[in-house]
C-alpha cells in the first residue's frame, strides 16, 4: 500500500489531467434496449443462439408435463437414470410426473459426479443475453447445476430482466446485506474451443442446458 500511495503521489505531480479525470464516472444510467420486445422471446432467441434449449409454458401443470417430456427424451436418448434435484420447493410439485429409477434431492458432492441430470430453478434471467442467474444462498443448486452432464432449469418470466444492467441493479439491492454471497450467471452449455478453435460443448460443465420458462399470469409478469 505504501508503494501504491508513493507512486500515486508522484503521479499527482506529473499528471496534468488529474483534476479533470477525477470526475465521478459510474453514475451514467445504463443504456436500455430501444426496441421493445418481449423479454421471453428475446431470452429464448439468445439462449438458442448459444446452443441452449428453451421451452415456454403457461403454468406449473404445463411445466411439469414439459419437464417429464424432457426427462423421458433424455432416458430414450442417453439412458438417463439418476436425477439430482436442488432443494427448491417448486420442484417437488413439478417432478411428480417423472419416472426414473432414482430422484434424489441434493445428493452429496462426491455422489453428484455420477448423476445424469440436475434440475433446479433460477432466481432470475437476462433477456438480452439469454442468461440464467443462480443465487446460491436462495437455493442449493451450485453443484446440481454444474456436475451432471445435463442441467434443466425453471425460471418465471416475471423474473427475467431486460438487460444486464437491470439484473445487476436488482442483485445489488438497497442495503449492504442484500447481495448474495455467491451468484452464478449461466448462458448456454459449457463450451471450449481450445483445440484447433473447434467448438466442443460439455468440457467441464453440462453438455446440455434446458430452460423451462413459466410465462403465465401467475408468473408475475412485469
Amino acid at each position: 500500500m505504501q508503494s501504491i500511495r508513493a507512486h500515486l503521489a508522484e503521479s499527482a505531480r506529473v499528471d496534468s489531467d488529474h483534476v479533470h479525470a477525477a470526475a465521478i464516472v459510474s453514475e451514467q444510467t445504463p443504456a436500455t434496449s430501444p426496441v421493445v420486445v418481449s423479454p421471453v422471446s428475446s431470452f429464448r432467441e439468445r439462449l438458442e443462439s448459444v446452443g441452449g434449449h428453451c421451452v415456454t409454458v403457461r403454468d406449473e401443470d404445463e411445466a411439469a408435463r414439459a419437464l417429464a417430456g424432457i426427462v423421458s427424451e433424455l432416458q430414450a436418448k442417453d439412458g438417463a437414470k439418476r436425477i439430482a434435484l436442488s432443494d427448491a420447493l417448486l420442484l417437488t410439485v413439478l417432478t411428480r410426473g417423472i419416472t426414473v429409477p432414482e430422484i434424489t434431492v441434493c445428493p452429496a458432492a462426491s455422489d453428484l459426479f455420477s448423476y445424469d441430470v440436475g434440475i433446479s430453478t433460477a432466481q432470475a434471467g437476462i433477456a438480452e443475453t439469454g442468461t440464467l442467474i443462480l443465487e446460491v444462498e436462495k437455493e442449493r443448486h451450485r453443484l446440481v447445476s454444474l456436475l451432471p452432464p445435463v442441467h434443466i432449469a425453471i425460471v418465471k418470466s416475471g423474473d427475467i430482466h431486460l438487460t444486464i444492467g437491470e439484473a445487476l441493479t436488482a442483485l445489488r439491492g438497497d442495503d449492504e446485506n442484500s447481495l448474495s454471497r455467491a451468484i452464478t450467471f449461466i448462458t448456454g452449455p459449457s463450451r471450449t474451443a481450445d483445440i484447433e478453435l473447434t467448438l466442443t460443448v460439455g468440457v467441464h460443465g453440462p453438455k446440455e442446458l434446458y430452460v423451462i420458462v413459466i410465462d403465465g399470469h401467475d408468473a408475475g409478469n412485469q
Binding site: E128, R181, T184, F185
Partner: peptide, 16 residues
C-alpha cells in the same frame, strides 16, 4: 461472444 457461458460473482464466504 455476447457473454461467456459462466460468470462467478463471489462476495466473501457463505453465511450458512
Amino acid at each position: 461472444q455476447h457473454l461467456t457461458s459462466y460468470q462467478s460473482l463471489i462476495t466473501g464466504t457463505k453465511r450458512a
